[in-house]
């Protein structure tokens, strides 16, 4: 075969590690499915009904883990942005982008499940006196601007650097925003974590933790899959450049999304 002698593997650093990522991904996705199935089974078949809220409280096991994971992802995106600025390694920028991207996607689910929960609990699709949901909306809106911002900067180095600055600024903004919105809310609603008995019963805590791990694993799986996609599409455009020698790079990976490429 003529192309078997083409040694892109030795020339693109990350290429040789591709298989390992692929295998880890398989284990990871199986663990994700198992945890999510176990969590949802616990939610619907085992955990006792909440005394105050009844059946509708079961949205809690989906909504809250999603929100926590998304926020942690935003903050991790800021950390990766910081590491990108520190080291100049483009892989950290790609990480930062993917973290934020998956968290924004999770954010849509957080807002929709939150609205459904509000409707079930208070009869309205949106309640302004629920500070966590409101601050989540603000954070979500901020991170939505990450895409047009990246898109508007053409130079790739500058785009990566500026996106990292954005990720850091927004990461610092997340906790500050939650504090301000919570302070503005004088009415304190009963929270599931702080019921009149003072804390979550063990069975609820266990169910919550299983769901949380499942959602967290889902986030990691999606991030890894996206990263593999970026890596492969980077390698494809590398191949194309080598083949054509015209430096056009190809369309894979899009213009906003950073691709992981080896020089």
């Amino acid at each position: 075969m003529p192309y078997s002698t083409f040694s892109w593997k030795t020339e693109t650093g990350p290429g040789s590690r591709f298989n390992m990522t692929g295998r880890g991904l398989k284990t990871l996705s199986i663990a994700t499915v198992l945890f999510l199935m176990a969590g949802f089974a616990l939610v619907f078949l085992w955990v006792p009904m909440d005394a105050d809220q009844g059946f509708k409280q079961k949205i809690f096991y989906l909504h809250v883990p999603l929100a926590i994971v998304a926020l942690l992802g935003f903050i991790a995106g800021g950390v990766e942005g910081y590491r990108h600025l520190r080291t100049g390694d483009r892989r950290h920028d790609a990480n930062s982008y993917v973290f934020i991207h998956i968290s924004v996607t999770f954010g849509v689910a957080v807002l929709v499940t939150g609205a459904i929960w509000a409707k079930a609990s208070w009869g309205y699709w949106w309640v302004w006196d629920e500070p966590t949901l409101v601050s989540f909306l603000i954070v979500f809106l901020l991170y939505c601007t990450y895409y047009p911002f990246r898109y508007a900067i053409e130079d790739r180095d500058r785009q990566a650097r500026y996106a990292s600055v954005f990720a850091i600024t927004a990461g610092a903004f997340v906790p500050l925003n939650f504090m301000a919105v919570r302070m503005a809310e004088s009415v304190i609603h009963p929270r599931v974590f702080a019921t009149s008995e003072g804390g979550l019963p063990d069975s609820m805590l266990l169910t919550f933790l299983v769901c949380f791990v499942g959602i967290g694993l889902l986030w990691i799986t999606l991030v890894k899959t996206e990263m593999v996609g970026k890596k492969v599409s980077g390698q494809v455009s590398y191949l194309r450049r080598r083949l054509h020698d015209d430096g056009s790079g190809g369309s894979v990976g899009g213009r906003i999304a950073p691709s992981v490429e080896a020089k």
Binding site: F55, L62, T113, A120
Partner: peptide, 18 residues
């Protein structure tokens, strides 16, 4: 506001389904 039990079931399932 209290959703009737059947309402609550619908809301919960639509959230998970979404």
């Amino acid at each position: 506001f209290d959703a009737t039990p059947s309402d609550a079931v619908g809301y919960v399932f639509s959230a998970y389904l979404f």
